[in-house]
Write a protein that binds this DNA or RNA. Structure first.
Length: 384
RNA sequence: GGGCGCGUAGUGUAGCCCGGUUAACACGUCUCCCUGUCACGGAGAAGAUCGCCGGUUCAAAUCCGGUCGCGCCCG
């Protein structure tokens, strides 16, 4: 169930509410990534306190360890990790594909060797549904297949066809098992593929739309190497063929400017490793000073220029690290490989992303969104 | 006083015996990268007149002499 609250006058941006079995999710929204049932270094309560309403967890990793059976025994992933909000689960396909050469894809599913112990497993559209039902997530994705960057059209066409076929099987399996599962309120969303090809995106969207999912993902845009323009094109090629009143998620995206750009195209939700992974590598996302207006910059705290800088990362940031520690100290933590550095950076970057999305939500329906969009577009142009 | 060993980037070492293009390696330092998270990871760069002086040689970190410093042993 998705309710659109406001629409932007000049762009396709809208704000809304996704109703899940574990509460409301206000869109546009960013989902912090908790691959293995944990946002690295962050407790569920903290994330909740900062206003996060939905996180992404990963079917593949939880299936492999500790196993979806164990999580079902725990009463589902929400209880297991003590997360009171909504959970969005990936199908597991992306991780299997990223394992590399051990993978063999057939119509049945994806066969691969586990990276934990080398055992051969097969992930099928059906088993992906079963695992996600055991996890009890609120939004589950169907298994899909997608190409690496710069794959030929013929191959992509085959992947689109297989994605549709798998989606049909996933729908059937979900219908069969949902009512007896841990979370009977689980929603299943479809995924549009088709890489950068206009007609294939259209075909994929139309075929997936026929299956009457309550929401959609646009996939295959964040596998690296592709330019920002191609990414927006892939979104634009897909959106017109999906119902306006249903929520859309852009898988794996992205930088702040990419997210705002996609919001302007009508996308409602996002997930990305950037804020958390880059935090672990010492990069902080920092808003410009209030007098300088909207926009941001990044700060590599490992840089020598911060060695004797006794100011906070960001004077105007309410996060724990900015309220209590200096750049010099946090740099020291990173240099000394003290885990506290990673934790402070992760907290900071997640708050940056969450606060940015809150500002985006507030701006939609007023003149402000166009201004925000312009600032971030300028930044994109500047970077290019 | 005598004997032996060691002095090579910030640190620790390799190369020396059997001289030969821009002296190698690790850690550290610096910069960049990260897009449905095997990820506190990946890539690149800077940094040494080889303790000092002299000799042999076409050519010396490498061989020879001296010298300084450090360590150990014997008196």
């Amino acid at each position: 169930m998705f309710t659109i609250l406001k629409k932007d006058a000049r762009t396709k941006a809208r704000s809304g509410i996704i109703q899940t079995a574990h509460g409301q999710v206000h869109t546009p929204v960013f989902l912090p990534i908790g691959t293995k049932g944990a946002i690295k270094s962050i407790a569920a309560e903290e994330l909740r306190f900062w206003g996060a309403e939905m996180i992404l967890a990963n079917t593949y990793h939880l299936w492999q360890r500790p196993g979806d059976g164990l999580i079902a025994k725990a009463g589902g992933l929400h209880k297991f990790m003590n997360w009171k909000g909504a959970i969005f689960t990936d199908s597991g396909g992306f991780q299997v594909f990223s394992l590399g050469k051990m993978v063999k894809v057939t119509d049945l599913g994806v066969r691969f060797q586990s990276d934990l112990d080398g055992t051969t497993f097969v992930l099928t559209p059906e088993s992906s549904v079963q695992i996600q039902l055991n996890l009890g997530s609120d939004i589950a994705l169907v298994l899909d297949e997608f190409p690496a960057a710069e794959t030929g059209k013929k191959i992509v066409k085959g992947m689109v066809a297989r994605t549709t076929m798998w989606a049909k099987r996933a729908v059937a399996e979900h219908k069969k098992l949902l009512s007896g599962s841990i979370n009977p309120g689980q929603l299943q969303w479809g995924i549009v593929q088709g890489a950068i090809f206009k007609d294939l995106r259209k075909q994929s969207a139309e075929e997936i739309r026929e299956l009457e999912f309550p929401g959609y993902c646009i996939g295959g845009v964040a596998n690296g190497g592709e330019s920002e323009e191609l990414m927006y094109e892939a979104v634009n090629f897909s959106m017109p063929h999906l119902e306006e009143e249903k929520p859309k998620h852009l898988l794996g995206v992205g930088t702040p400017e990419q997210i705002i750009g996609a919001v302007a195209l009508g996308v409602d939700s996002f997930d990305c490793v950037i804020p958390t992974r880059e935090a672990r590598h010492g990069r902080f996302y920092v808003n410009l000073k209030p007098q300088d207006g909207d926009g941001y910059l990044t700060m590599n705290i490992l840089n020598e220029k911060f060695k004797e800088d006794f100011e906070p990362i960001d004077n105007n940031c309410p996060c724990y690290g900015c309220q209590n520690y200096t750049r010099a100290y946090i740099r020291h933590l990173f240099k000394s490989e003290e885990p506290l550095g990673i934790r402070l950076a992760t907290m900071h970057n997640l708050r940056f992303y969450l606060d940015l999305m809150a500002r985006v939500r507030e701006s939609i329906g007023s003149e402000k969104f166009a201004g925000l969009l312009k600032v971030y577009k300028d930044r994109t142009n500047m970077i290019k």
